[in-house]
């Protein structure tokens, strides 16, 4: 379905809606049983959901729009810290019944602030491309980390502790489904064709009356918003945030998911996010070798299936 975007847009959009419903229903049903699931597995499943949101939102920037961002962890940090701070301050004043509302508000606030940061990065991206853009986004992510590291209000280097545990399977996968839906619907709309046009050939796109500037900024802002949401979920899942968790290796992890899944292919990216979250856990038995195996896998996969693991029929498009 998703790999045939270009030829069957209406079907694909209907498909996306169906996925949204399936996703949300599944999330609600599974969360009913979450009490029975072993906490370790529960934790990993939530990790998977958060990584899906991160990978799908980065895919909008790096895949569909053909930009190259290495700062996704920075947006995640903005969203995570904002949401965590809000619920830490407000939650003691609210009765239990209102806590889910607070969580929603905190997530949205985190997402919005991250989107604002995305705007800040999107604007320089108008003048930069390729490696220059990569380094600027990387730098942006590092600046966020350094600022957080020095902010006493959010715990500075010692981190923010005692964040209420709001994140559940339902929240995570409901939001993951919404993320997938929004990104898919956006790219498949008439408006959204512009993303792919910008990614395919910016000059040709602008000569066809498409304004690349607007598309790039939209991609950055939307992508950052969902990264911020993912950050909020992460904060209320781990219940502890420290600046070192948002360094550039975290961004690299997300980039690898997008590339393994296939740039611009949402379904592939989702599967890649699932596999890459599970992989380190499966390899845990080989603890001292697992990161060696992980890095080897990246190399081998790039050689064997550079177009992404899950691309079957679409003609290979130059990704850079």
């Amino acid at each position: 379905m998703l790999s045939t975007f270009h030829s069957q847009s209406p079907t694909a959009l209907a498909g996306a809606k169906r996925w949204l419903i399936v996703g949300i229903v599944l999330a609600v049903v599974v969360s009913m049983f979450s009490a029975q699931i072993n906490r370790y597995y529960l934790g990993i499943i939530v990790d998977i959901g958060i990584n899906i949101i991160l990978a799908v939102s980065l895919n909008l920037i790096n895949g569909h729009t053909g930009q190259f961002s290495l700062g996704h962890a920075g947006f995640m940090a903005v969203g995570g810290y904002t949401a965590a701070k809000i619920s830490l301050v407000v939650s003691p004043m609210l009765p239990p019944a209102l806590q889910p509302l607070l969580f929603l508000f905190a997530l949205l606030a985190g997402g919005s602030l991250a989107a604002l940061a995305g705007l800040g990065v999107g604007v320089p991206s108008l003048r930069l491309r390729g490696d220059y853009l990569a380094i600027v986004t990387l730098g942006f992510g590092e600046i966020i980390r350094v600022v957080v590291q020095n902010m006493e209000a959010v715990g500075a280097a010692s981190g923010l502790k005692g964040i209420p545990k709001y994140t559940t399977l339902g929240w995570t996968f409901g939001l993951a489904a919404i993320t997938i839906y929004v990104v898919t619907a956006l790219v498949n709309s008439t408006y959204g064709r512009g993303f792919i046009a910008v990614s395919d050939d910016e000059v040709a796109a602008s000569s066809m009356g498409i304004n690349p500037v607007r598309y790039k900024v939209t991609a950055f802002v939307t992508g950052a918003f969902f990264a911020g949401i993912a950050g909020g979920l992460y904060a209320h899942h781990k219940q502890f945030l420290s600046p070192t968790g948002f360094d550039f290796l975290k961004s690299i992890d997300i980039v690898v998911m997008v590339i393994l899944g296939g740039m611009g292919r949402t379904a592939g990216v989702v599967v890649a996010a699932i596999l890459l979250t599970l992989l380190p856990e499966v390899l845990r038995q080989f603890s001292e070798y697992r990161m060696i195996i992980y890095s080897l896998l990246i190399i081998v996969l790039m050689m064997a299936r550079p177009q992404g693991l899950f691309t079957w029929n679409r003609k290979q498009k130059g990704a850079a």
Binding site: R39, Y40, Y41, G43, F240, T244, G245, F246, L249, E281
Partner: peptide, 17 residues
């Protein structure tokens, strides 16, 4: 791995699994 975010998985595993 000296990484934030990793510890919670590890501790959950040690306890629950």
């Amino acid at each position: 791995q000296s990484k934030a975010g990793e510890t919670s998985n590890v501790v959950n595993k040690l306890i629950s699994k």
